[in-house]
């Protein structure tokens, strides 16, 4: 035992003393059942340390101040007592958070910017407001994405155990997750060809509306601009963003799996519209039938549907075949 003799001890500190303010700052966030006990112990500890500094020649005020300073930031000490996390996102979840944020920023921001720009363009906006709109949109979407993704991962960090966190990141890391080295990237030619193709399809969609090719009628029903054509344009932007990403990382099982998203986003609405025979503009069909009475829009829709399904299946199977 080492009971300290304290004949020179200063009187007990008052309710407004540095010690009391410090003890209050530390204990106010502790669970109620620990609060008083920790407070009592801290008071004794600060006083003991102050006594020892006092014996070494410090004044009472200096000694109390130094004793409290040594214990440091009260929020940090309280977190140590609670044993709670002192980081927003710990090492277990950080890689998943960084990956998720990177992918979302690389894919979603360009898509939204393209869609907003196309819509503005159709509204007849001038170049200045187009650029302004694109920049504002990119910043706004980027900040929103970063905020919500970070919030979700910070909450996960506080609720998941380490094993659960690992599971949430797609199981423990395995060598199969390694991307190929950069030198085995797809060729720039392939990338350029894919991008040009998607730009062509998107351009054709917009062009056939702006310069109606069939006797002054657009080929695709203009009513679809209210929802379905923007969806197709978003899907095309997604395909383009995906192509760039795939070119940077090379084919892996994950690339092939992710390939499903933009491909399906494009093929599914198109197939649905063809199946329900809503794709072609009725006025255009009538105009075509004047020169070609046997033209059957049902057959045309069926051809689109078949091509759509075949290309979709081929694209998906090819992705997995290349990844394997």
């Amino acid at each position: 035992m080492n009971p300290r003799a304290t004949p020179t001890a200063p009187p007990a500190p008052g309710p407004d003393s540095l010690t009391e303010r410090y003890v209050h700052a530390v204990t106010r966030r502790l669970p109620e059942d620990q609060r008083d006990d920790v407070a009592r112990e801290l008071r004794a500890t600060v006083a003991d340390r102050a006594d020892s500094l006092h014996d070494a020649g410090a004044t009472d005020d200096e000694a109390e101040r130094a004793a409290v300073t040594e214990l440091g930031d009260p929020d940090r000490l309280a977190a140590d007592y609670r044993g709670s996390a002192q980081q927003l996102i710990g090492p277990a979840l950080y890689p998943a958070w960084a990956r998720m944020l990177r992918i979302l920023l690389l894919v979603v921001v360009p898509i939204v910017v393209v869609v907003v720009t196309v819509v503005d363009l159709l509204d007849g906006a001038d170049a200045g407001s187009l650029i302004g709109g694109a920049v504002t949109t990119a910043l706004g979407v980027g900040v929103q994405l970063a905020f919500w993704v970070t919030l979700v991962y910070a909450l996960l960090d506080r609720t998941l155990s380490r094993a659960e966190a690992e599971q949430a990141c797609g199981g423990p890391w395995s060598p199969d997750d390694l991307p190929p080295v950069r030198t085995s990237r797809g060729s720039v030619g392939d990338l350029a060809a894919s991008l040009a193709f998607y730009a062509l399809v998107a351009g054709a969609l917009v062009w056939q509306q702006l310069r109606p090719p069939v006797d002054g009628h657009p080929l695709i029903d203009p009513a679809l601009w209210s929802f379905w054509i923007p969806v197709l344009l978003v899907a095309l932007a997604g395909e383009a963003a995906y192509e760039v990403w795939k070119w940077r990382t090379g084919w892996t099982r994950r690339t092939a799996l992710l390939n499903l998203v933009p491909t399906t986003l494009f093929a599914l609405p198109l197939a649905y519209l063809a199946w329900s025979e809503r794709l072609l503009d009725p006025d255009a069909v009538a105009a075509i039938q004047q020169g070609w009475p046997d033209f059957d829009p049902g057959v045309a829709h069926l051809v689109v549907l078949a091509v759509c399904v075949v290309v979709w299946v081929w694209d998906v199977v090819d992705g997995f075949r290349r990844a394997a």
């Binding site: 080492n2 300290r4 004794a44 500890t45 003991d48 040594e70 214990l71 440091g72």
Partner: peptide, 18 residues
């Protein structure tokens, strides 16, 4: 607590109170 801190210090184990 504080006595333990001092004894640790004397024994060469530097550790902060916090």
């Amino acid at each position: 607590g504080y006595a333990l801190l001092e004894q640790l210090e004397q024994a060469g184990f530097r550790v902060d109170g916090n």
